[in-house]
């Protein structure tokens, strides 16, 4: 009994103070421009181990660019990103970082010339040198997790958008990533398919994996996140618990944004 109470106290203390867990990713003074257009204007952010963070905000505020910087799909112009204490700017080769920081794309980007099984096993077999048998067993487990074990031999073109995105999540998970980045995972989906993908992500959030999600689904962000970052014009205007952002908030910009999307 006593032990239980203690651990609950610890957890509460941890998430409230935000210092109980180790940061997996730290972002400092991050700056990124495309040509003359400054997209990120000095971002500070910390993603703690096992936490789920959402990045919300208006279109063009730099959410996706920020996320893409985290696994070096974009190269920052200034500032620093650290993954478990290692500076990205000092890494010669990004393959180690990327095999630990998985990504799910808005447009799925499944490999159309491979079937579902091959899409999922390709990276573990070729890059992690895991045996084909083991990788396939793993893939089957992941497909059950996303509810698509019957589509194992289908090709991406034979699947609906929602199914493709669930396969893409399984493909990213097959590398057993330390952190999973999701870049607007439901924005390219027909409305009736959004729920199935969000449910998979919600289940995932319960497994303790560290996740950063760029999303326009406010109810989802509120439900699933430990921390919400609100971005506007290249800066993080506010961050905090879902309650801080969605309820106890008097920032006019955030309130106006939430009113617009929450209809």
């Amino acid at each position: 009994m006593e032990e239980k109470t203690l651990s609950i106290d610890n957890m509460n203390g941890g998430s409230e103070a935000g210092t109980g867990r180790k940061p997996v990713i730290t972002v400092n003074e991050l700056v990124k421009s495309f040509g003359n257009l400054e997209i990120l204007k000095g971002i500070h952010m910390e993603i703690e181990e096992g936490s789920v963070v959402s990045i919300i905000g208006p279109s063009g505020s730099g959410k996706s660019t920020l996320l893409r910087c985290l696994n070096a799909l974009e190269t920052p112009d200034g500032g620093e990103i650290e993954y478990r204490g290692q500076k990205l700017s000092l890494m010669k080769d990004m393959t180690f970082l990327r095999s630990n920081v998985g990504m799910v794309f808005q447009h799925f980007n499944l490999f159309p010339h491979m079937n579902v099984l091959k899409n999922i096993t390709w990276a573990p077999v070729k890059l992690k040198k895991i045996s084909k048998k083991e990788a396939e067993a793993d893939a089957m487990r992941l497909l059950r997790q996303v509810g698509l074990e019957d589509k194992v031999h289908a090709y991406p073109a034979q699947l609906s958008g929602g199914q493709q995105q669930r396969v893409a999540i399984a493909r990213a998970l097959a590398m057993k990533p330390d952190v999973l980045l999701l870049d607007e995972p439901t924005s390219a989906l027909d409305p009736e398919m959004i729920g199935e993908v969000l449910n998979v992500i919600k289940d995932l959030a319960g497994t303790g994996i560290t996740m950063a999600i760029v999303t326009h689904e406010m109810h989802f962000a509120r439900e699933v996140s430990d921390t919400v970052f609100f971005m506007d014009s290249g800066v993080i205007m506010e961050s905090g618990s879902p309650e801080d952002i969605f309820e106890n908030n008097d920032n006019p910009k955030i309130m106006s944004f939430l009113r617009k999307v929450d209809t």
């Binding site: 799909l73 980007n109 499944l110 490999f111 990213a172 590398m175």
Partner: peptide, 29 residues
């Protein structure tokens, strides 16, 4: 599609492997 290249990168593959195993099979078609 550039997204194919990025999907390969995001899994930790290097440029040459992405070119030969992801891009060229699709380009062939």
């Amino acid at each position: 599609n550039q997204g194919q290249y990025e999907a390969g990168l995001s899994l930790g593959a290097d440029n040459t492997r992405i070119m030969f195993e992801i891009i060229i099979p699709q380009a062939m078609k």
